[in-house]
Amino acid sequence: MSRIPVLAQELRDRRRSLLWWSVGVAGWILVVSAMYPTIRDTSGISELVSQYPKNILALFGVSDMDFSSGAGYLAGELFGFVIPLLVLMLTIGAGASIIGGAEERGLLDLVLSHPVRRRRVLLESAALIVVLALVFGTVVLLSLAVMDPIVALQLSVANLLGTVLGVVLLGITLGWLALVVGALTGSRGRSLAVTGAVAALAYLASSLAQLVDALRPVRLLSPFWYATSGSPLVAGYTWWYAGVLLAMAAAVLTVGVIRFDRRALSA
């Protein structure tokens, strides 16, 4: 018998979709990295890209587009925008539906009429989101580990680990936010809307802060700043940022535990 019986059901539901999600992510990474040698060797692309307006590049999460190294190429093509977007679709989608969606479908009432503490339901759900984010991170790592020798990406192991750690923690932080908003509103849709808006604003705050001085203080509130800023695949991840992300995630979850315990559930 599962050790987290409340969610045994959720896990079973998500296994197949997680598998396909992983296949898709791995495929995307393989294709993008396989194009690297061509792009590196095509004269002019780097020069062309370097002439892009800085604010356009910043919108895509890159400070300097540098296609002459594998790390620079992947930072621009994958880790600036696509990979964070994919992890968030996975964790926010799950976070919004696990409790908020269960309440909408009338399942939460039934589960909580059993001798199960609300806190436990919330914490098990949080653990499930961690699992999803870790599976995602592992797929990214493995895909790049396979491609690195084939197309000579010459990635630094430490930088890659740091970059993926940032992405995984970003997924956990916003996934937990979606979980908590769903648990406190009883609505999957509201959770998706709120968390989606927070994610978009946080992304803009982090990426545009490089250009707009007025935004510089705000970026310090953005989880993206602590996860993806400064091209960690090239320059190395600022490891203590992981602690900030963990603290943000823990704060969100703590609020959730306290408030969810007292909330009136909708029938």
Binding site: Q9, D13, L110, P115, V116, A267
Partner: peptide
Amino acid sequence: LEIRRRTGYLPGEFALPGQL
């Protein structure tokens, strides 16, 4: 928790995960 351990409950709108 003790109450829920010793009772059974049928909600007015009884729902189960449909694929089970």
